[in-house]
């Protein structure tokens, strides 16, 4: 599918929150279950590494990218309506 190109992945930005996996399982399976998600985040606590793995069943629907807070997953041409507010609007106190 053409959509495949539109999901940009930058694993080095990942904060390991698994929001993508939780959201994917709700959207596609109707429950929260990271094991049934089409994306899994494997965490290595001691190395501080988060590895993103998509399964072959991923439809590239982009729902995970819409909720990804870090920019690790981004839907390039559709501006996410959930995009975080710009940083530093108010002085950091």
């Amino acid at each position: 599918m053409i959509m495949a190109k539109e999901l940009a992945i930058r694993p080095q930005k990942c904060i390991g929150c698994s929001t993508c996996a939780l959201t994917c399982s709700l959207v596609h399976r109707g429950v929260f279950d990271p094991g049934q998600s089409n994306i899994r985040i494997y965490r290595d606590d001691f190395a501080g590494i988060f590895e993103l793995r998509f399964s072959s069943t991923c439809t590239r629907c982009g729902q995970c990218a819409r909720v990804c807070p870090s920019g690790a997953l981004q839907l390039l041409e559709i501006p996410g309506d959930d995009a975080p507010a710009a940083e530093g609007q108010v002085s950091a106190q």
Partner: peptide, 15 residues
């Protein structure tokens, strides 16, 4: 880089 708890977009901790 930040590190988050599950489902958290804030990631208040740092690697």
């Amino acid at each position: 880089r930040g590190v988050a708890c599950i489902a958290c977009p804030i990631a208040c901790a740092h690697w």
